[in-house]
């Protein structure tokens, strides 16, 4: 078994004091693998990602990156720690050009910025063509790729992705998820929240099911894919009782 790159233990978190959305969640993302979090609406999946990224205050529990405690980080320091976060929607700056979007995340890179930008442009030829266009003019799939490119700009060890396939056509979402697979195979740790359960499970290594702000089931993604209980939850739409 591979090493734990990112670990969240006993997370209690929420927007309002005394009203936690996550009441006790533990998740481990293994290195160079895709870990997916699934669960019904309102289970707290996005909140978990945001809590790890420091966007929702964690009132109890611990987040560790390669063994180091990073609970409640200041969001602007994520990049320096080697973590990138791709929000669900509004994950690019529409009023800036594609190039400016990238320059923004690259501005700490100093003299390497131009080189890094060229690398990214080679990786995403679709974006390279439209460098000087406003990001707001991109299609849904292209936007998602720009968001991923912005995340990759800082060469992260860990990428947190919040429903990257939301609002995309089946083809575009497949492409985005396949790209995540390529990244993971290249050594990046990915923690993913997905609604698109089957597709996500197929491409992931490990999966967690969350409901009512708590862990329910976890295991290798392939096993969960064939698990009749998981099928029942999602196909029957029935909600699980709290553990």
């Amino acid at each position: 078994m591979t090493e734990a790159a990112l670990e969240a233990r006993g997370i209690v978190a929420g927007y309002i004091k005394g009203l936690p959305i996550l009441s006790d969640v533990s998740v481990t993302a293994r290195e160079a693998a895709i870990t997916v979090i699934i669960g019904p609406n309102g289970a707290g999946k996005s909140t978990l990602i945001k809590a790890i990224a420091g966007l929702v205050p964690v009132s109890s529990g611990q987040v560790r990156l390669a063994g180091q405690d990073i609970t409640n980080p200041r969001p602007d320091t994520l990049g320096r720690m080697g973590i990138a976060y791709v929000p669900q929607s509004d994950n690019i700056f529409r009023s800036l050009t594609i190039r400016q979007n990238l320059d923004l995340v690259l501005r700490h890179a100093g003299s390497d910025a131009t080189a890094r930008r060229d690398e990214l442009m080679q990786q995403f030829p679709d974006l390279a063509e439209k460098q000087r266009d406003k990001a707001g003019t991109l299609s849904g799939g292209q936007r998602q790729f720009l968001a991923v490119a912005m995340a990759l700009a800082v060469k992260p060890r860990v990428i947190l992705m919040d429903e990257p396939s939301a609002g995309l056509s089946p083809r575009a979402s497949q492409e985005v998820l396949e790209h995540a697979r390529v990244l993971a195979d290249g050594g990046v740790t990915i923690l993913l929240v997905e609604q698109n359960v089957k597709q996500a499970l197929r491409l992931s290594d490990h999966a967690y099911i969350l409901a009512d702000g708590r862990n329910q089931i976890n295991g290798p993604a392939a096993e969960l894919l064939d698990d009749p209980v998981v099928g029942q939850i999602y196909l029957g739409g029935k909600r699980m009782g709290t553990a």
Partner: peptide, 16 residues
Amino acid sequence: RAVAENPTLAQVSGIR
């Protein structure tokens, strides 16, 4: 401009 458009995204993009 990024902060004006989307403060949260600006933050996670490394802007303090």
